Amino acid sequence: MPTLRAPLVAALATTLCVLGAASPSDEPAPSATLTALARLVTDGGAPAAALLAEDRSGTRYRTAGAALGRDDHFRAGSITKSFVATVVLQLAAEGSLRLDDTVERYLPGLVRGHGNDGRHLTLRSLLSHTSGLFNYTAETTGPVPLSPGQAVRIALAHSPGPLGTYAYSNTNYVLLGLIIRSVTGRTYAAEAERRIIVPLHLTGTSFPGARTTLPEPHGRGYTSGGRDVTELDPRRAGASGELISTLADLDRFYAALLGGALLPWAQRRELLDTSATRGVYALGIYPERLACGLTVWGHNGHITGSYVRAATTSDGRHTAVFRLDTDAVGDPSLELALLDAEFCPAPTRAPGPVGRTGPPVP
């Protein structure tokens, strides 16, 4: 994606790449992590970046570029998928559904046409992005979908890709949101609040629905061209990406998810199963193998005006969440360098072309 080069950003990159001060209870962040965070501004072109990390040594919060508040609310994009997948896996643990059930069982007659057939698709294929369903957000013509039904109709107007082959598609999670409602009688947002947000005390996390504003406090959000897009209608993203959250809430959520607090053992094993995608994507989260050989788990979130990435060790004991107030990482190698710096004791990889095990920015 193009690097953000608006005049405001150019000025920030040269004059405001100052690392934010930590609160008195915070532990000092490793210098390599601070340097890597700053490069997301100076080299990546983001107006500002912020990181919250926690491990046995304590909690670390730092910012680079323009001021970002530690408690700011922001749009978390596709991190919504981790919440939706967790609800589905909890329902599976309770026996309310099975991952190998067909989509047709819960949404009879909905997925049909142009070679699409819900009788041949399983819930597991939706969770792992192996259904072959067209990604409705890739459709740039016609009306913008504001309901799940509209999003599904856009997707079904296209022939599917090969079943069983990994292809990231937001349509999969829109359908999972509908399936949650079919099974429980409540929306995915209501179920996520009841099962995740309230039990974990995620007081800064919400599903906005039609609300176009962010809760206070919050900063601004910018497109890659520098346009202010802080206010937007998130209904187009729906169950695939409407979530609003904070760094601390996402840190707590992924620590609980990977640490086993949200899922029984059998479903946690399903959560981490990447066999259907040959190691690329599991069920609502994906692995990233770092330069030192450590694999971390989490997800990224990309929505107009915001980019966020969460990464957690497999035991949930070391978490890191960073965000930008723009919708793209100018250079993906900078993102990986930051994760290397935070999680790996050895020197990090130099920025430049690198391979990755996770999916591209959705």
Score class of each variant (00 low, 15 high):
182 S>T: 03
180 I>P: 10
169 S>H: 03
232 L>G: 14
220 R>C: 04
243 L>H: 09
170 N>W: 01
229 V>L: 07
166 Y>L: 13
199 P>K: 15
227 R>S: 08
268 R>G: 14
198 V>Y: 11
258 L>S: 09
242 E>A: 09
266 A>C: 05
209 G>S: 06
190 A>D: 15
158 H>S: 03
192 A>S: 15
254 Y>F: 13
233 D>F: 00
179 I>A: 09
245 S>E: 12
205 T>V: 10
231 E>K: 05
215 P>V: 02
242 E>H: 09
218 H>V: 13
257 L>P: 00
174 V>F: 01
158 H>T: 07
185 G>W: 13
232 L>H: 15
211 R>P: 05
211 R>A: 11
162 P>I: 10
225 G>P: 01
255 A>N: 07
171 T>R: 12
254 Y>S: 07
218 H>Q: 09
234 P>T: 05
169 S>E: 10
263 L>N: 08
210 A>L: 06
256 A>S: 12
178 L>G: 08
182 S>F: 06
223 T>Q: 08
209 G>T: 05
158 H>K: 05
242 E>P: 01
238 G>T: 12
183 V>F: 08
183 V>S: 14
224 S>W: 03
232 L>V: 00
207 F>Q: 08
259 G>Q: 05
256 A>M: 13
267 Q>S: 08
255 A>T: 12
184 T>S: 09
162 P>L: 01
230 T>L: 05
224 S>V: 13
224 S>H: 08
224 S>T: 14
230 T>Q: 14
185 G>S: 13
197 I>M: 00
249 D>T: 11
